[in-house]
């Protein structure tokens, strides 16, 4: 059906990537360099995540892709189709049916389990980059655990905005050792990162892979008098009523009308279905 090797990459490349992944799992939060390959898509499309997924997928896997929480964006659809075509794997939009989930900017609302792998697309893997552009220096800072600069960044946030304004890519410390960029997920998702599933992070342009084994301790950095808060918009979802999920603000008309809806479309859809079923059951009861 196609001329590609399974999941597009050749076996040697996949082995190289798997070695990087295994090393990453052995040293949680440590950025492992790898020889990133050209993929038939631009860097902004998550080539790092795609390569990690390619090295991770087996023919039995069920694959899900989300972009900002949604299964139906161009980016998510393209990547899903790419692996349908090159690996022939089944795909799904349902979080609990997927065994490998590639994501950009979100962690699914539904709790993940030990049989699942979450693959993140990462644009900038180096959390220290903001204040220290020299790669040689940041590498040394990681190896010597010199992380004072991360707090300088948070200090600047509070000095300028009165609170830690960092809302995405909020830095974390992994198992009390490496400081890590969780990719641009909202800080609302940070507490979920201590989870039963394996988490793999791929940065294509920057040629780095890092990883979190199941149940790894992940702590968001903060100050004693400005503790970390996993904040979200103070609303409930207009469509499913959820008040515990991360919400996107959506403009609904040209009069500036706006509503809040779940960013995780699969979560929202499953809740809407459940609500409808419950309503139908109630209706049946009444008419019976």
């Amino acid at each position: 059906m196609n001329d590609y090797n399974f999941a597009y990459l050749d076996e040697q490349t996949k082995r190289m990537i798997r070695r990087a992944i295994l090393k990453g799992l052995a040293i949680p939060g440590y950025q492992v360099p790898f020889a990133s390959r050209e993929m038939p898509m631009p860097f902004g499309w998550g080539t790092g995540g795609v390569q990690v997924s390619a090295a991770t997928l087996t023919p039995e896997d069920v694959f899900k892709v989300i972009d900002q929480g949604a299964d139906d964006t161009t980016n998510a659809v393209s990547i899903r189709k790419f692996f349908q075509a090159t690996a022939g794997v089944d795909t799904t939009e349902e979080t609990d049916k997927a065994t490998v989930i590639q994501t950009r900017h979100r962690i699914p609302e539904a709790a993940l389990n030990e049989d699942q792998i979450l693959v993140y697309q990462v644009p900038i893997p180096e959390p220290l980059r903001f204040l220290e552009p020299r790669e040689t220096e940041t590498r040394k800072m990681h190896s010597l655990e010199e992380y004072g600069l991360m707090h300088v960044k948070l200090y600047e946030d509070i000095a300028r905005h009165g609170a830690i304004a960092t809302a995405y890519a909020y830095p974390v410390k992994v198992e009390g050792r490496y400081v890590m960029d969780p990719s641009p997920i909202p800080k609302f998702d940070n507490p979920k990162m201590t989870m039963p599933a394996i988490q793999l992070f791929g940065a294509g342009r920057e040629q780095r892979i890092y990883a979190l084994p199941p149940y790894t301790e992940v702590v968001s950095l903060d100050f004693e008098d400005y503790p970390f808060e996993a904040s979200k918009a103070d609303h409930s979802c207009e469509l499913c009523g959820a008040d515990d999920s991360y919400l996107d603000e959506v403009i609904v008309d040209d009069q500036g009308g706006r509503i809040f809806v779940c960013s995780d479309t699969a979560y929202c859809a499953s809740r809407q279905t459940a609500l409808q079923d419950a309503a139908a059951a109630q209706h049946e009861e009444i008419s019976a």
């Binding site: 707090h151 300088v152 600047e156 000095a159 100050f223 004693e224």
Partner: peptide, 20 residues
């Protein structure tokens, strides 16, 4: 690129100060 206060505070944070 860091404020005067951040510049002065950096060494404190480097040795573990965590109270803003």
């Amino acid at each position: 690129s860091v404020s005067a206060g951040g510049n002065v505070g950096e060494r404190l944070m480097a040795v573990g100060a965590r109270h803003y």
